[in-house]
Design a protein around this nucleic acid. Sequence first.
DNA 1: GATTTATGCAACCATAAGGTTGCATAAATT
DNA 2: AATTTATGCAACCTTATGGTTGCATAAATC
Lengths: 99, 99
Amino acid sequence: MFAALGDATRLGLIGRLSDGGERSIVQLGDGLPISRQAVAKHLDVLLGAGLVRRTKSGREVLFTLQPQSLAEARNWLDQVESQWEGTLGRFKDFVENQP
Amino acid sequence: MFAALGDATRLGLIGRLSDGGERSIVQLGDGLPISRQAVAKHLDVLLGAGLVRRTKSGREVLFTLQPQSLAEARNWLDQVESQWEGTLGRFKDFVENQP
DNA sequence: GATTTATGCAACCATAAGGTTGCATAAATT
DNA sequence: AATTTATGCAACCTTATGGTTGCATAAATC
């Protein structure tokens, strides 16, 4: 899922969806300097990573952000950081107990 | 930087460094099914993303985690999530005020 | 001084990633 | 019914990416 976030275009798409609204492929690609197909492929990647949800409405395909999945990424970061800080704490103890 | 995290091998390296210790290229590659050179390349990527710090000690090159940079990634996620929740709040208001 | 041991540099390779184009299909419009 | 408009499918292209191998260098160890 970090891989899915590791592309500027896809980060941009998520940004556009971060207001909670649902948008079609055409809408999401509006203004971008790439073809509609390229946008569709990026959305497929985001879908595969569970970052967006796909619903059909008439002839349109609408995408919405799936923010629960972002929490997953955050949890991983939190875990690494907290483990690091735990060690930092032990290191502080060590230093402070030096004669 | 999400791109740097978007590789299983590199995530593993960060995991190994998350205890705050410093390790050489050989140490970090120990147990991995890839060559030392491949490990060195991954560490270069992590270095480029600011996720690790490089110091020389004798003939060894030691790497340590740079957790401040992880916070950056977290901030981005927080921002997207909070914007989404803001909208969710407005949506709740809307629903609750329906007759 | 000779030999390990830890890296760096560079060329090379296969596959994946991001992108394009052309054509087909399906739902709205006119 | 004819035409837009929104997608999907598939082939194709170029460049990055993750990986390897061979050789050079520099610091420890014998």
